[in-house]
C-alpha cells in the first residue's frame, strides 16, 4: 500500500487521466455556455440566473484544474477542488434520480438527447472520487511532468 502511495509513475498517470477527463468535460461545456446553463436548469435546483453563473464559472474551473493537475501545478489544491466538484456532481445526480427526473447528465455533452442519468453515472463519479482521494493522500506530490522527464537518465550513447 505504501509503495502504491509513493509510486511516481502511477501518480503521474492517474493525474493525467483525471486531469484529461476534466479538460474534456470543461472544453465541451465552454464551447456552448447557453446549452450548459440549460443542462444545469434541468436538475431543477437553481433558477436561470444561478444556472448562468454556474455555466460561466464551472467550465473554466474544470479546465484550470484539469490542466494544472496534468502539468503538476498546485496538485493538492486541484485534487481538493476536484473532490469537492465530484461530490457535488454525485449529490446532484443522486437527487435527480431520487426525484425521478429523466434528464441527460450534461457532463461531457450538452445534447439533451444524450443518454440519461442513471446509477452508472454515480458509479463512475465514485470511481473518479476514489482516484482523487487516493491522489490527495499520495506522497511525492511535488513531482511534475517536467521534473519527471528531467530526472530520467540519458540513455543515448554518444
Amino acid at each position: 500500500m505504501k509503495s502504491l502511495l509513493s509510486n511516481t509513475i502511477l501518480i503521474l498517470l492517474v493525474r493525467i487521466f483525471l486531469g484529461g477527463i476534466f479538460v474534456v468535460a470543461g472544453l465541451d461545456k465552454i464551447t456552448d455556455l447557453q446549452a450548459f446553463a440549460n443542462s444545469v436548469l434541468q436538475y431543477k435546483v437553481v433558477g436561470p440566473m444561478l444556472a448562468m453563473c454556474t455555466a460561466t464559472f464551472l467550465p473554466a474551473l474544470e479546465l484550470l484544474c484539469g490542466l494544472s493537475l496534468i502539468i503538476g501545478l498546485y496538485p493538492r489544491s486541484c485534487e481538493l477542488l476536484i473532490i469537492i466538484m465530484l461530490m457535488g456532481f454525485t449529490i446532484l445526480v443522486s437527487s435527480a434520480l431520487v426525484r425521478g427526473l429523466d434528464i441527460s447528465c450534461g457532463c461531457f455533452t450538452q445534447d439533451p438527447n444524450a443518454s440519461k442519468i442513471g446509477y452508472q453515472k454515480i458509479l463512475e463519479n465514485c470511481g473518479l472520487l476514489f482516484l482523487s482521494v487516493w491522489l490527495l493522500f499520495a506522497r511525492n506530490q511535488d513531482i511534475n511532468l517536467f521534473q519527471f522527464f528531467r530526472k530520467q537518465p540519458n540513455k543515448s550513447i554518444t
Binding site: 464559472f57 498546485y74 489544491s77 477542488l81
Partner: peptide, 14 residues
Amino acid sequence: IEALLLIVAAIILG
C-alpha cells in the same frame, strides 16, 4: 490558499 487562487482565476477566465 492555492485552491482559492484557482477559483478566483476560474471566475476571471470564465
